[in-house]
Amino acid sequence: MQERHPTWFTKLPEARAILESPLPRSYLNFAGTWLLNFMDTLRGLMAFGLITLGVAVTKAGVARRVVRPLIRAQVYRAGVRLLPMITFLGVALGLIIIGQTVALLTQVGAHSLIGTVMVTVLVREIGPLLTALLVLARIGTATVVELGTARALGEVEALEALAIDPVRYLVVPRMIGLAASVFALTVYLILISLVSGYLFAFIQDVPLRPGEYFNQLAAALRWEDFVLLALKTIGFGLMLAVVTCFQGLARALRIEEVPHATTRAVVHAVVACVLLDALFIVVYLLI
């Protein structure tokens, strides 16, 4: 591993000595190596993300004719094509979680809490995170394979030879497409699961009128929820795009390294999304 992906710290003589030291020390070193690797990846990701944002802003007018259809294709692929899956997941979520929660809360007479619980669980947490993970599974992995293969086969160099900015052509459309898709799909997921959850509760004869249910939801929602939902889902989309494109493009991959890069990207993307989610919990607690 270390030999195949030499990073800045494995080139240091001190670091080499630590990495090659015998067993008792190596347990600690394992944690140290992991931490250094983590920091290295984090640094690379941040640099890549900033470069991409820079390109997205400064070259916003460059080659719109080429980039616009690419953005549309990404929105179609990551958004529209995922609608059936999101509908399925929304119904399942509604039946399994929402319906049962509504039934339980009604049993203990905590009717008035239904809105708050729904908003906290669904709108703030599960909706965005689940959508992001679904988009990662369906589109994120495909992105790493596509870009990794393109990089390994030299297509990225071919782009550069034609003076086409690979970040503008390959990364920016994916970033915009994924951000828009995660946002839109989250809204769909939340709406579908709220409705299907009520249907489940209705079938179970929970004494809750639709008007009452939706009134409670409306009362529990604050205007910040809409803003933060938008920010969070767009953040998830950007994060997914940056992590998957970084793993696919940033290193000079060989074709046999593409599967490895894909699994790595999934791990990094999940961790990144959860960390971003944690950041938003702090924001929710503060407001």
Partner: peptide
């Protein structure tokens, strides 16, 4: 480029 010219496969 050599070997097939590195065409954009998509």
């Amino acid at each position: 480029f050599e070997m097939g010219g590195r065409l954009f496969s998509h």
